[in-house]
């Protein structure tokens, strides 16, 4: 297994556990996630709705709503800063400056009573030592960077379309050249043509500013397009992690295989997609053993006994699947 040099890491998350403690029970949202992301690299977090991707991203900025969210365990180091033990004031200095976040739904993530220009210039004025006029000037520049004419500075969110609003959110997130960008399904709420535009804008800007990025999505196409590394998340755990080539071309985990199986493929002629049977386990009542075992066609009674640990297949690639303890175990999906 390969340990990355801590000095090269913009983000170092170890054994993160986050629960939501509600009256109806404890939701085990994140159950021991590790992320090591190097400066300038892009990591894709892929998984179903409710698998804990967003909670993980929110925890990087300590934005997990509390109550009911409780970070039970783990450490988060962002650019060498111990996020878990940072005082509120320093945390505010990190947010939007060192790392910033793009949210899923642009329709609701802008404040309806402030102009878009003011919302962008606010983040600049907060983090950069400059006058209001300079901040406004730079906010105007950012609007142009994301392809919105500067003249629309004084308009309100309701005067923009969904795609335009997401551009504003992106401009806001990038305004202070963050070293890490957390993009939480930035294109899910947009229609397909706009998705492509927004994605292009983001890719271009990431290259321009050299930010590292965590791209949260359930769209494997987006992962393939923008990511260097991929973590496949299931029930709050990373079940397979590796480089893009590792995960896409040398798929090992049965769940990842299932994800690819539920994609339409233009080259393979088949009548039906093969979705993964069953549902995600109830996060208030996770199985004792491997969480994917109840839906896994390779599962043995052994799988239900204990949670599988990390099994390193190469320097960059690991899976959590106890079947790989058997020397000759193979999943059906062929290496590409």
């Amino acid at each position: 297994m390969a340990q990355k040099n801590p000095k090269d890491l913009i983000l170092d998350i170890k054994d993160l556990v986050i629960h939501y403690e509600t009256d109806d029970g404890t939701v085990e949202a994140v159950n021991g996630i590790d992320i090591q992301l190097e400066y300038g690299k892009t990591l894709g977090l892929v998984g179903e709705t409710g698998s804990g991707k967003t909670t993980t991203a929110l925890s990087v900025l300590r934005l997990v709503p509390d109550p009911p969210g409780v970070i039970k365990n783990g450490s988060i180091f962002l650019d060498g800063k111990d996020i878990m033990n940072l005082p509120q004031k320093e945390l505010e200095a990190v947010r939007g400056h060192l790392a910033s976040m793009i949210f899923q739904d642009p329709m609701t993530s802008l404040n309806p009573v402030f102009t878009v220009g003011d919302q962008i210039s606010e983040v600049i004025a907060l983090h950069e030592n400059c006058s209001k006029a300079e901040a406004d000037q730079k906010a105007g520049d950012m609007l142009e960077v994301v392809g919105i004419p500067r003249e629309r500075f004084g308009e309100y969110p309701h005067q923009f379309s969904g795609g335009m609003k997401q551009r504003v959110v992106i401009a806001m997130a990038l305004a202070c050249n963050p070293k890490l960008l957390l993009a939480d399904e930035p294109t899910t709420a947009l229609d397909v043509t706009i998705q492509a535009q927004v994605l292009e804008t983001m890719k271009g800007l990431r290259e321009k500013y050299g930010s590292a990025m965590i791209m949260i999505t359930h769209d494997l196409g987006i992962i393939a397009e923008v990511c260097d590394e991929v973590s496949v998340v299931y029930a709050g755990q990373i079940v397979e992690h590796g480089t893009l080539v590792d995960v896409f071309n040398h798929t090992r985990h049965p769940y990842t295989e299932g994800l690819f199986g539920s994609l339409p493929n233009i080259e393979i002629k088949r009548n039906r997609l093969s979705p993964i049977p069953g549902l995600m386990p109830d996060p208030t009542d996770l199985p004792k053993g491997c969480c994917f075992a109840p839906r896994c066609k390779y599962a043995t009674p052994e799988c239900e006994k204990a949670r599988p640990g990390k099994k390193w297949l190469s320097d960059t690639h690991y899976v959590r699947c106890s079947r790989y303890d058997e020397p000759n175990f193979k999943i059906e999906r062929e290496d590409q």
Partner: peptide
């Protein structure tokens, strides 16, 4: 206070009292 745009304001690093009295209260 639970609205998405309040979370956005926090994510921008807006100090908590400004989040409450500027971003939230006016809405």
């Amino acid at each position: 206070i639970r609205a998405d745009y309040i979370r956005t304001a926090r994510a921008k690093g807006v100090p908590e009292n400004k989040v409450v009295y500027q971003h939230a209260l006016r809405n």
